Simulated assay, not measured.
Amino acid sequence: MTALLRHRLLWPVVILIALLLLNVVFTDNFLSVQMKDGHLYGSLIDILRFGAPLILVALGMTLVIATSGIDLSVGSVVAIAGALACLRISELGDQNSVGGVLSAVALTLGLSLLLGAWNGFLVAGVGIQPIIATLILMVGGRGLAQLITDGQILTINSSSYKLIGGGYWLTLPFGIIIVLAMVALTAFLTRRLALGLLIESVGGNAEASRLSGIRSRGVIIMVYMFCALCAGIAGLMVSSNVSSADGNNAGLWIELDAILAVVIGGTSLAGGRFSLSGTVLGALIIQTLTTTIYSIGVPPETTLLFKALVVTIVCLLQSPAFREKAFHRRRRPPRAPSAVEEKVKVPA
């Protein structure tokens, strides 16, 4: 029981359950999941579906933060990915062509990897601070997305592309299946292979890792590429869900929500150890909080303040120092050994 109370994910789980219960009070049949036309529907399914892009972006952000870095450009990559895919599909003679859609998706993901490599090169190769290196693409990338769409909202009509963010497969929204696959793949690569240890080692001390034979620059470039890839997939999901690309507003501020999700999940911004399950939980909290704001009727002008307040409460509850002060818990000083214990030495 004591170990459970000290678990780092206890308070995020409590907050998530509290938000769900609050929705139950204000929304009828909130927990009900129904099958219609072979598809699952319900508020819980909607939370997973609308939270899928954030989970993906936060997943990539976790590995970047684990290397003691940060990526502020993921929102711009989301916008670029959606804009490029929609532009390519709009130029097809048949927008429902599966081959044409797949080529647009492949082109988009390739560009996303290239953008991630650019960020990694600036950080690991040139030595620019991560917050400055990614800020360059954050600003310039948003302009690039608007250049691709010519400053307009680019609309398409492709049922094949619609599947990515708005379609269903095996009774579930296809976006949820993509997220499950990406989380499983990331967990396998970082927890079943040595990659996770390499990332944590670089985040703990990059110079010591380099001296021990780890190619820290390669690891850093790789995690930025993975983060951009996740953002690119999220951009495909966002644009396909609404069948349009908005270079100005697509993915706006998603980088901040992703950082919050990572922090709520227990990953330290200082780098080192990271938690994929905690990140997914943090992203679900943020999406459930957004749903709660609409369900309880919080005025639109106070939405951001309400959201910031809840996130602050979650972060404070996760802090051991704050809990000790708030709940008047004092650590017991170590007991002095007795005279008998001093004389009796346990053999090594």
Rank of each mutant, 00 (worst) to 15 (best):
G51P: 13
L54F: 09
L56H: 08
V57D: 14
V57G: 11
V57H: 10
L59V: 09
L59Q: 04
L59C: 11
M61R: 06
L63F: 11
L63H: 05
V64R: 03
S68K: 13
G69L: 08
I70S: 11
L72V: 10
V78W: 03
A81N: 05
G82D: 09
A83H: 00
L84P: 10
C86A: 14
C86N: 09
R88S: 14
R88C: 13
I89Y: 07
L92M: 13
L92H: 11
L92E: 12
G93N: 13
G93D: 14
Q95Y: 07
S97I: 08
V98K: 07
V101W: 03
V101D: 09
L102H: 15
S103N: 12
V105P: 12
V105C: 08
A106K: 05
A106H: 06
T108V: 06
T108F: 02
G110M: 07
G110E: 04
L111S: 03
L111Y: 04
L111N: 03
L111P: 07
S112I: 06
S112C: 09
S112A: 15
L113N: 10
L115E: 13
A117S: 11
G120P: 09
L122T: 03
L122Q: 05
A124D: 14
G125W: 03
I128V: 14
I128E: 14
Q129W: 07
P130R: 06
I131Q: 07
I131P: 08
I132S: 09
A133M: 07
T134F: 05
L135C: 13
I136N: 06
L137D: 05
L137C: 04
G143T: 02
G143V: 02
L144Y: 01
A145L: 00
A145M: 02
A145C: 04
L147N: 07
L147C: 04
I148K: 00
I148P: 02
T149C: 00
T149D: 00
D150E: 12
Q152N: 08
I153L: 03
I153Y: 00
